[in-house]
Amino acid sequence: MAKRIAFIGLGNMGGGMAANLVAKGFKVEAFDLDAAALERAKLAGCTAHTSINAALQGVDAVVTMLPNGTIVHNVFDNDVFKWAPAGALLIDCSTIDVATARDVITQATAKGHQMVDAPVSGGIAAANAGTLTFMVGGTDAAFAAAQPILAAMGSAVIHAGGEGAGQAAKICNNMLLGATMVATSEAFAMAEKLGLDLQTFYNISSKASGQSWSMTSYCPVAGVGPKTPADNDYQGGFATALMLKDLRLAMAAATDAGADVPMGRRAAELYEAFASAGNAGLDFSAIIKTMRG
């Protein structure tokens, strides 16, 4: 099993993921352009490097957690494929478009690497706690090789199918999440305007046919249900900008696939407007502000 891992991309998600690899006994060679992120990784037990080249030397596997498909392509084309040891296992945990994921994996395979796309669900808290869900695309052999590394960072590692299937599962899941959060928010906003006590409405609907994860695990109303970003003025959690990024990916994929997604498209429009109004940094459940007017 791979024991020495290069981890590239130590942002809000990657930092916690790298720290969990260290906690599970892996030696992590860390790289990020941000000096503060590198320092946090060092404090978590990673070896910090100021160049990707240095981080990639002699590793058994490479894990990347990067902002978008263009950056993923650039990092693999210009760095990983040049400097990673022959035969090193490659794992990309970024959320990107399916076409890019498949293209990078095709290149990796041609160069003798096993590779999977393994986007995550769970957010910053799950990244820090090591309870992420990984949706993994790749061959059976590549999945088997990646599974022990991913299991060190998550509580569920699911093989979604071939190359790019992890990304496909992620954007379908987050399109569903975005749409259900909109529906949950408008239901609470309407209940409020009808004079219902919101805790009472929660007690009823969370046990009835309207129940959803957006309600019972991530309620958009402060003081109702488990503690969520709503209880912290919508700070932290999963930023609106990130939800919008995923919805844009979903809309592009729907167009490519010829899929009819009217609810997903409306959710994307609402989040586009909400982010443009200066709310991109708020948790995505703050969309209830739109419904409340």
Rank of each mutant, 00 (worst) to 15 (best):
V72Q: 03
N173K: 06
S217F: 08
A2E: 12
I158C: 10
A145M: 00
L242P: 03
H159Q: 06
R265F: 10
M181T: 13
L10Q: 00
T100L: 00
I96K: 04
I158Q: 14
A160M: 15
E186I: 05
A191I: 11
V63D: 02
F188K: 07
K82S: 12
D79H: 15
K193V: 09
K207A: 14
P119N: 12
A189C: 09
N12D: 12
S155C: 04
A268G: 00
V28A: 03
T184I: 13
S185M: 08
A250N: 01
D117S: 08
A257W: 14
A144P: 04
Q199M: 02
D233L: 00
G45L: 07
R248N: 15
E39R: 10
V261Y: 00
P85I: 12
Q211M: 11
G15A: 06
R102Y: 03
S212I: 07
A151C: 07
T216A: 03
L249K: 09
A88M: 05
D60C: 11
V98I: 15
A19I: 02
F76T: 06
V261Q: 05
T133R: 02
A35R: 11
N68K: 11
I287M: 07
G223P: 12
G123L: 02
H73V: 07
G225W: 01
T216L: 06
L89I: 13
M251W: 03
A141I: 13
A230H: 02
T240Q: 01
A241G: 02
A86H: 11
G9T: 10
M65D: 11
L132D: 06
K193R: 15
G210E: 07
K227F: 03
W83V: 10
V75W: 11
G264T: 13
F201A: 14
S185E: 08
V22W: 10
L43S: 13
M17I: 14
K111S: 06
A145P: 02
N68Y: 13
I171T: 14
P220H: 01
A129S: 14
A23D: 09
K27Q: 12
V120P: 11
A286G: 07
A145H: 00
A2H: 10
A2Y: 01
A55K: 00
A241H: 06
A41I: 05
E39H: 08
A145V: 00
E192F: 03
A86Y: 01
H73K: 14
P220G: 01
L150N: 12
G258C: 05
G293T: 11
A208H: 03
K111E: 06
C172I: 15
A152M: 05
A101N: 06
V62R: 00
F81C: 11
S94Y: 08
T228K: 00
S276C: 00
T95P: 11
A253E: 15
A250I: 01
T216Q: 09
Q107K: 15
F81N: 10
F238Q: 02
A277V: 05
T64D: 05
R292Q: 15
S155E: 13
M13T: 06
R102C: 12
G69N: 04
D34Y: 08
K24Y: 04
F188W: 11
A108L: 10
S94W: 08
A84Q: 02
A179H: 01
N53S: 13
M1Y: 07
D256C: 02
I124D: 09
A41C: 08
L33K: 07
K245M: 04
H49A: 09
